[in-house]
């Protein structure tokens, strides 16, 4: 049962890396934020996966159920999701400001404009 046993984690890893790639390789500032979100959501998937107990149910106490999935990762991820959204909101606000100041949201273009500032 080795292979299916780890399959979930692998999916999470692949997704993480897709997000990570978007963050570091893409030049568009909004898309970077999207990448960041994908990256984070994948980490959440990873957390939830480890909380799952085979045959368990959602951790809501009820008569007659013996096996529950682990509630702690759920709690952590609830927090993390909110933190992630906060970060996203802030990042997007920054993007709006950058757009105001530089009239572009492409990284290479802001870099060029910054170099001009430097030369002044």
């Amino acid at each position: 049962m080795e292979f299916p046993g780890l399959f979930n984690y692998w999916v999470a890893v692949v997704l993480m890396m897709a997000g990570f790639y978007i963050v570091i390789a893409q030049g568009n500032l909004i898309k970077k934020v999207v990448g960041l979100n994908i990256f984070q959501v994948s980490v959440f998937v990873f957390y939830i996966s480890m909380g799952k107990v085979k045959g368990g149910t959602a951790p809501i106490l009820d008569e007659g159920i013996q096996l529950y999935s682990n509630p702690l990762p759920h709690v952590l991820i609830l927090t993390a999701i909110v933190v992630g959204v906060a970060t996203t909101a802030l990042a997007l606000a920054l993007v709006v400001r950058i757009r105001d100041a530089f009239e572009t949201i492409e990284e290479d273009e802001t870099d060029a404009l910054e170099a001009e500032d430097e030369a002044r």
């Binding site: 959440f44 909380g51 959602a58 999935s69 990762p73 991820i77 999701i81």
Partner: peptide, 10 residues
């Protein structure tokens, strides 16, 4: 994966 609360939030 049994994480209903998280699913709602997500």
């Amino acid at each position: 994966m049994d994480a209903v609360d998280v699913a709602f939030t997500e």
